[in-house]
Write a protein that binds this DNA or RNA. Structure first.
Lengths: 126, 126
DNA sequence: CTATCTGCAAACGTTTTGCAGATGT
DNA sequence: ACATCTGCAAAACGTTTGCAGATAG
């Protein structure tokens, strides 16, 4: 196979896959520690970048700027309320893979996408 | 009309509208200073939040976490290279407004969305 | 007169970096 | 041996907040 993952990268990926939610770098770091697979925070981030470039992991940013990571395959997108900041999962992604290939300029290889919808949730509607 | 903008908010919006690219909070702050419409950086951010909640401004995050702002109407999305970090505009947004309404759970009012595609550009393809 | 808004500087939380030592090939 | 990877602590970054004074209604 084309992709080889280091032991550290495998550990990170395993945790991401076994978590039902996306995880921040810090959360990942804590979970690793809890499983006595501790690694330095910097190492977590360095390997998250590498995993992203290898197409194993995707990432999105909260309005706060915090990054959340998930396995590439988990194709979940969100509705985020601009008022209270909470996110709901978007049941179905309306973007077709084929559409993306079609709309991408020459030579760009799409690995994953993030679709974030912002607005007001039912509680915060003005 | 429903939305009233303060003088500061109007200044910010005008700059965003006259810029062809999205702007970061810091960039906006510099541009305002250059036009002797200087305002504190904190005020820039405070008003960007208000403009977002009023549905005048949209925002997306670069992989670096930096936030970029644009007028709501400017519905441009991007392809971002995970290797070199550069962004290309995505010629046409494949998400239909109707799709979003349809897929949104009860009571969520979508104001805008961001679609970011990540992958490798032609120069960085492995 | 009260509520909101502002500038400033300090604080914040997340992520990155420099470096010296460990690890792997 | 050499390149790569790691932990640590310090630094950097963009953004937010506390507060006292200004401004608006």
């Amino acid at each position: 196979m084309a992709k080889s993952l280091s032991a550290r990268q495998q550990q990170i990926l395993t945790i991401l896959e076994s978590s039902k939610d996306e995880l921040s770098g810090q959360a990942l770091h804590s979970l690793l520690k809890a499983q006595s697979q501790s690694m330095g925070l910097a190492t977590v981030y360095r390997n998250l970048h590498l995993l992203q470039q290898k197409g194993e992991v995707r990432c999105r940013h909260l309005p706060s700027g915090e990054a959340l990571y998930a396995p590439l395959a988990r194709d979940v997108h969100h509705l985020t309320c601009l008022e209270c900041g909470k996110s709901l999962p978007l049941p179905k992604c309306p973007v077709e893979r084929d559409d993306l290939q079609l709309h991408s300029p020459e030579g760009f290889t799409p690995l994953f996408h993030t679709l974030e919808v912002f607005g007001h949730c039912i509680k915060c509607r003005p």
